[in-house]
Computed example of a mutant assay.
Amino acid sequence: MTARPVELAVEAVRYEIDGQPLLHGIDLTARPGETVGVVGPNGSGKTTLLRCVYGALRPNRGRVVLDGVDAASLGVKDRARRVAVVPQDAAGTFGLTVREVVAMGRSPHKRFWEQDGPDDVRRVAEALDTVGAGALAGRRFDELSGGERQRALVARALVQDPGLLALDEPTNHLDIRYQLEILGLVRGLPATALLVLHDLNLAALYCDRLYVLAGGRVAASGTPAEVLTEALLTEVYGVRARIATHPTTGAPSIVYLPEDGERAGY
């Protein structure tokens, strides 16, 4: 990846369907090169916010700004040169090989019907090797396991050469080894990253800052140590937990307690 990291600003973004608001004026920033996590319970608006950022949804109010430019003013290809997406599912891939799916990431940089050149082929092969999926190149994408598909989608985002990576549950379906490898890879890239995550321990380990959403609003934001408190987990998630500083990583480490924790002696 050679693109310059993008500065992202989400300004008072509101999104509603049939008059029902899903996002209530969200403000969020990601500085160039930062890894920013969006966390929160199911239905809190995480994926809706991410879709507004990469352009699948258009906010009813507010705006998404990329390097000082209103993203709504950008054409589809121009926006795709700046922002690459790793969605939870992949449409339009039936019957394609993994190599062909990953090569789709080069399309924003090419003219319509322009064929892949040697540089495109090299980039695709390198991206697949980077995510540990080189052996999958010739297989049909729709025949892969969930974890294999996820790795291929990350590879497609890499060859897009973006300044901003928008990832919706990038560790979904992955075993722990690949969860760590993918998040480590994302954090090490010369790009800004905005990740929707469910696993709070992974978010604490790999994200520079977190935004906690609840009911379509920002309930808290800051570093993982500032945000992930026992009081917040009780208020937002409705769970009891104990939080300590991991002795090796220095990140917050969360242990969830059973509901009958008091009787169990916790």
Rank of each mutant, 00 (worst) to 15 (best):
residue 45 G to F: 06
residue 48 T to I: 01
residue 48 T to R: 06
residue 49 L to N: 07
residue 51 R to H: 07
residue 54 Y to F: 15
residue 55 G to H: 10
residue 56 A to H: 14
residue 57 L to E: 13
residue 58 R to E: 15
residue 59 P to G: 06
residue 59 P to K: 08
residue 59 P to W: 08
residue 59 P to A: 05
residue 60 N to L: 11
residue 62 G to P: 01
residue 63 R to M: 09
residue 64 V to F: 04
residue 65 V to K: 11
residue 66 L to G: 09
residue 66 L to Q: 08
residue 69 V to Q: 10
residue 69 V to P: 02
residue 70 D to I: 05
residue 70 D to H: 06
residue 72 A to S: 15
residue 72 A to L: 13
residue 74 L to S: 11
residue 74 L to Q: 11
residue 75 G to H: 12
residue 76 V to P: 09
residue 78 D to L: 10
residue 86 V to K: 04
residue 87 P to L: 00
residue 88 Q to L: 01
residue 89 D to G: 07
residue 91 A to D: 14
residue 91 A to M: 04
residue 92 G to F: 00
residue 93 T to F: 00
residue 95 G to N: 03
residue 97 T to M: 00
residue 97 T to L: 02
residue 101 V to R: 00
residue 101 V to F: 00
residue 101 V to L: 03
residue 102 V to R: 02
residue 102 V to W: 02
residue 102 V to L: 01
residue 103 A to M: 07
residue 104 M to D: 03
residue 108 P to A: 12
residue 108 P to D: 06
residue 111 R to A: 13
residue 111 R to L: 09
residue 116 D to H: 14
residue 118 P to Q: 14
residue 121 V to A: 14
residue 121 V to M: 09
residue 122 R to P: 09
residue 123 R to A: 15
residue 124 V to K: 08
residue 130 T to W: 02
residue 130 T to P: 00
residue 132 G to Q: 09
residue 134 G to T: 07
residue 140 R to H: 15
residue 141 F to M: 08
residue 141 F to T: 03
residue 142 D to T: 07
residue 142 D to I: 00
residue 144 L to K: 01
residue 149 R to C: 13
residue 154 V to I: 13
residue 154 V to N: 02
residue 154 V to Q: 05
residue 155 A to Q: 01
residue 157 A to G: 02
residue 158 L to Q: 01
residue 162 P to Q: 09
residue 163 G to S: 10
residue 168 D to A: 11
residue 168 D to S: 09
residue 174 L to C: 11
residue 175 D to A: 11
residue 175 D to R: 08
residue 177 R to V: 15
residue 178 Y to V: 10
residue 178 Y to M: 10
residue 179 Q to W: 14
residue 182 I to N: 12
residue 183 L to G: 05
residue 185 L to C: 04
residue 186 V to F: 05
residue 187 R to M: 09
residue 188 G to F: 13
residue 189 L to Y: 07
